[in-house]
Write a protein that binds this DNA or RNA. Structure first.
Lengths: 190, 190, 190, 190
DNA sequence: CATGAATGAGTGTTCATTCAT
DNA sequence: TATGAATGAACACTCATTCAT
């Protein structure tokens, strides 16, 4: 009973992620999601209060999973450079392996859907990552500024370059991760 | 016979930009746009073929204006560093002066609305900017990679940092442009 | 879970037949049909895919019922003349008893709504009638031509005469069925 | 000035006839008619009061033309049989030459658009035809009944057989006019 | 005479959601 | 838990028509 439940929730999440990529937030609907999941629209209301609640929770789930995948396999005793490189690599691999999830997040995070509570909750999952940059600042390896700014300089350019690189007709040739990381590191190191 | 009113087109654009910021792409509708513009829904179809056509054209207009504002006041004989600094400053000022337009673009550019023709057309307006970075590469001042990658490392972090900074409860203190530009420049310079 | 209500489908059909007679195909609409049926416009889409599908299916139902009523009570061992007379009588009575249904069919059958599949399906219900005329041809009683042509000479004049007769200011006095049948029979017999 | 006017009216009529055949009365609109004619929707209102007025007048024009073409080349001294044969031939040729006009009439005449005045006016154009049948009755050649009934037995079967014959998958082989006229004549003659 | 702009009222259809089972 | 039926409200869009030129 519990098993079935979780499977269905995952199926709904997958359907939403896929549909958002196909038709966008402007054209999605409860019945389309239901049809794509293979259930009745009424069943969606067994799992979520309403459309907004559903999108918030699904966004939270997907974003949380991304955060986890990006901060895994980093030992606390590692050097700051190696830790930051691993973070960037994790992000890079996540975008390649979970492209639809990543693009779903990109659409969702810019919409005025997110509440302060959601943002706050998500920031909790980032604590460990912040600590790494904090350590780099304290050790004098990184620039003496806010860790959030340092993180921004690693994550967002990589994300945007990935999106640029995905475009078929993009002028940007296939990405050389070493060069990208070098730019990140040169940007944030002291 | 009445003439088409160019003011009306601008009013529609403004209404769309404002509404998208307030309620997002998922909740916008032709009638809400009409009401916000102060015209009849039917009149929207005098100016645009349909909803999709409208959003595409409005996006193109706003994005084009942003591109122009970001590449203005840059003399071709300036040093590459000064030119790049000016580009970053222009972007920074644009985001502050035209925050709603900027956030509209951020939502629109991630939606699956954009066509290849749109992207191609927009890239034309970026030609002059590309040339600056091209020169930096040739002069050996910038890293030996694609100019698009170099541009990405200036524009996107700045944009994301601006968005981070706007969040009320953000952990990021008010942005110091000098520090941000320093990070951009360190990232892209040889 | 609620079950689909067959009464509702019949109510929709009745409303359509009545409305088409009142206001014609040019002025009918889904919401008028819904209001006349006493349901929500959205409910129509529970029973039919769209307007076209609805009209096609309703036309098929009504036409099929007409065909059945026109070919009933005809024993296969009866003489061809008696069988044909019965066919004409059945049609005559149908038009009088189901005038609205008949006039609905007359409007629908001339519109470019009918597909080949519809026509083909309807022809199946006519098989028994065709057989009667086929027999008349083989027995040498009827003119040696296509049974469809013979049928046409019975059905269509009677239908048109009924319509003429219905017009209040028509110059045609109230119809004498015996005379009409005599004309049919004289037309088709050898 | 006058010339231009009449040309435009004819162009509108042609566009309507063509469009009704393509999309039917249910889907036609003033703007579609305007576009098909190559004029502005507003211009339609120079020639007709409103949509209903337009359809009525166009129907009257087309129907009147049909009536004229069907009753031409019939000398008053001809024998009744020859005159009736000519009437049937004229109708047959009209349907073949002006198929779209004929099918337009078939759609229009069954709709509840026609007023009593329209019908009355159209009957005036039929006077000469009625006289022929009247003469046949008086001469004892035709059945002793209403001339309208006799006319109905000639015109309507021929029309319906033409429609049947037009269907690609019709079971009715290509029509033999001699057989059809024989059936008409056998039906109405004494 | 002719027209493109403009619109209130409507179109066919889908929406998010509830209900009865 | 799960669902098809049902719907008022909304959707994108078109309508017939008027108006200013």
């Amino acid at each position: 009973m519990r098993r079935k439940d979780e499977n269905k929730k995952a199926a709904i999440t997958n359907a939403i992620v896929r549909l958002i990529n196909e038709i966008g937030f402007a054209n999605i609907s409860m019945s389309k999601i239901a049809k794509a999941t293979g259930i009745s629209p009424a069943t969606l209301y067994v799992y979520y209060e309403n459309k907004e609640d559903m999108f918030r929770k699904v966004y939270m789930d997907v974003k949380k999973q991304m955060t986890e995948k990006c901060s895994k396999d980093i030992a606390s005793e590692e050097s700051v450079e190696k830790a930051v490189r691993k973070l960037c690599e994790n992000l890079f691999h996540y975008m390649q392996e979970y492209t639809e999830e990543f693009l779903f997040i990109e659409q969702a995070c810019n919409s005025p859907m997110a509440t302060d509570e959601m943002i706050e909750e998500l920031e909790q999952y980032n604590r460990d990552t912040v600590k790494i940059f904090q350590r780099g600042i304290e050790e004098g390896i990184l620039k003496q500024t806010s860790p959030v700014l340092l993180i921004s300089f690693c994550y967002y350019p990589i994300q945007q370059i990935f999106k640029e690189w995905r475009k078929e007709k993009s002028m940007l040739p296939k990405v050389d991760f070493e060069m990208v990381f070098q730019m990140c590191w040169d940007g944030i190191r002291r």
